[in-house]
């Protein structure tokens, strides 16, 4: 199995542990990851230019297409943005031809062949979890028994569902199933599907902080020991808001790290 790994802008510079743990876990499961010369997924451009956003995204999709690979991303925002661009390209013919022109300047073309996938569903398939499974997956050698974990889904993995095509946006289960697969116990917390607040941290910091703190307090009150993430934006957001405090009260952990631990991979390879 082979994918083009799309790390996006945040992971390499701000959260290298996510790249390390993703690579470690996927290598362990026999997935080959290819690095292409990807650029920004286009998310920041959305506020300025719809075409600019789609061109940015389509360039990446076209690169993967040229390499004959599907795209795998550990970032839910990149997932949402790349898939959003696919939808727009699909439904808006004039846009499609404008984008084709821009891509042609680089000798690229988009036809929609390259699919975009997030790491979580791939892992769910690889470690063979069934919905509602209660036993650790076969790949797990050091089950994280007893660890109470709150799943942070991230907005753009879930919504809008027709674009994200990730899980039931109102009642997703994939993350909890994956947590159970490591032997840990998922906690049910009222704000699990809420926005982490990250998109507002530049425009309206106090409001963003209000949102983030509400989530952390909720997860703690629900008995979580660990807040498990699958998106660099959410992850960094929780860490940033808690970093002022003497010691962060709710530990954040990337899902790839949790799974890596459960598979007995060395901590260092997981960026821990």
């Amino acid at each position: 199995m082979k994918y083009a790994l799309f790390l996006g802008c945040k992971i390499p510079s701000r959260l290298p542990a996510y790249e390390a743990s993703t690579r470690a876990v996927l290598a362990h499961l026999g997935v080959t990851l290819v690095d292409l010369e990807f650029t920004c997924c286009g998310y920041p451009a959305r506020n300025v230019s719809r075409d600019g956003f789609v061109v940015s995204a389509a360039r990446n999709l076209a690169l993967a297409e040229r390499a004959g690979l599907d795209v795998l991303t550990p970032c839910t925002c990149c997932l949402g943005t790349l898939r959003h661009a696919q939808v727009l390209l699909d439904e808006d013919a004039p846009l499609r031809s404008r984008v084709a022109q821009a891509l042609a300047a680089d000798g690229l073309a988009w036809s929609g062949k390259a699919a975009v996938e997030h790491v979580l569903p791939l892992l769910a398939r690889l470690i063979g979890t069934n919905k509602g499974a209660t036993v650790p997956a076969a790949a797990v050698s050091v089950p994280r028994t007893g660890l109470r974990v709150a799943a942070q889904y991230g907005c753009h993995a879930l919504r809008p569902a027709n674009v994200a095509r990730f899980d039931n946006p109102m009642a997703p289960t994939i993350f909890e199933t994956l947590i159970r697969a490591t032997g840990a116990t998922p906690v049910d917390w009222p704000r699990r599907l809420d926005c982490c607040g990250d998109p507002l941290h530049e425009g309206n910091p106090p409001l963003a902080e209000h949102m983030t703190r509400a989530k952390i307090a909720d997860a703690l009150a629900s008995g979580a020991e660990v807040l498990c993430t699958a998106c660099p934006h959410c992850h960094l957001r929780f860490d940033a808001v808690q970093s002022g405090a003497p010691d962060p009260s709710l530990r954040t952990l990337l899902y790839t790290q949790l799974l890596g631990q459960a598979m007995g991979l060395p901590a260092k390879s997981l960026g821990l």
């Binding site: 907005c155 926005c195 998109p199």
Partner: peptide, 12 residues
């Protein structure tokens, strides 16, 4: 409009 977090709850 400017503080919308693009969480897509409304759209969903």
């Amino acid at each position: 409009v400017w503080d919308c977090a693009t969480c897509y709850q409304c759209q969903e």
